[in-house]
Design a protein around this nucleic acid. Sequence first.
DNA 1: CCAAAAGTGTTATGCTTACACCCATGT
DNA 2: ACATGGGTGTAAGCATAACACTTTTGG
Lengths: 195, 195
Amino acid sequence: MTDSTSHAVVGVVLRVRDGRLEALTAAAELGEGGLEAALARALDVRALAHVEQLETRMAAGRLTTAYLGLVPPGVELDGDWRPVGDLLELPFDTASLVTAACARLRAKLSYTNVGFALAPATFTLSELRQIYVAALGHDVSTTNLQRVLIRRGVLERVEGRRAPGRAGGRPAALYRFASRRLEVTDEFAALRPPR
Amino acid sequence: MTDSTSHAVVGVVLRVRDGRLEALTAAAELGEGGLEAALARALDVRALAHVEQLETRMAAGRLTTAYLGLVPPGVELDGDWRPVGDLLELPFDTASLVTAACARLRAKLSYTNVGFALAPATFTLSELRQIYVAALGHDVSTTNLQRVLIRRGVLERVEGRRAPGRAGGRPAALYRFASRRLEVTDEFAALRPPR
DNA sequence: CCAAAAGTGTTATGCTTACACCCATGT
DNA sequence: ACATGGGTGTAAGCATAACACTTTTGG
């Protein structure tokens, strides 16, 4: 049997800009090429540092498969970017996908290395902190961010320092993500296998 | 535009029986009624204590949306149940969905109350332990299981005790899950919001 | 010399694991 | 009494959070 339902692929792309988490949505109809191919027609996937599927919904006889994409600073992706939290002008189902995307991002920030997809190639800890603050929606201490990510092996020191701004201050060390592909770094909180 | 791709909904159902994790798969073509309706045609969803979507794939021009379902002991669901780990006779893509389902279950057992969907209404801690051991694939200490689940408020004591078997032993207290709907009980391991 | 920003040291807290010990029942 | 399974008490380990303090720069 064959169905004749319209099937859209929606990309929900997130980025951090000016200390705010912003979202962009784009859609294309599913064709012969497959889900990822439709996503590629909807937007320039080369700009995305990370992509993962969110979910597939059916409403009003229309299928929608949503993807989460993340764009690092410095990479341009044109479209109608708008701050998350200002979703009132979006249709309800789109807004709800953006909310789902943000929830997924927040969760993964705490137990994976996804941060790499929102950060530039190299950065200072303050810069990384701003990204985490924007994405998580609550304050994060630079000290603890560093401890956690270093101990897990997520961050690596890199040569050189960032010169301080006008106000002075100690020059900041530069870091990078050890891997730029998604890795689970803190698998299970409880009920770990015995040693 | 309208696509004419065939679209199957596959249910991957898991249960624990005789100390082993078993899987059953069933599929139906997507129709007008929507994804959940197709799932209901594939199998008796009334038997499932929990259902959630896994993912949507497209391979060889064919769409597949997979769901994870969980059945508690004492509820019958007919079909070709087979132990997880004995997937060689299944087509590759089905086997890979079963693997994904198990991974999802294992992960959620550690930070949610999903256990309710694999356990009977009331049970002893030993019985619950056996379920966790089978689902996680590694040993779990009864002591720690109790501590973790009680502190999180996932388990509740219930009136009465289970009489010991032939070999004697102290009668076991009975417990139940405080909620029988999915709840996240251990949100973030790291980077929690400040107090 | 002072302010500002970055980074380290130290302590406290909380959750989990490990393990020893006590409890209740059948034979 | 003793074996068996159930349950609790206690201590240890580990990761995170909090915060004080030191370091390095610009003005």
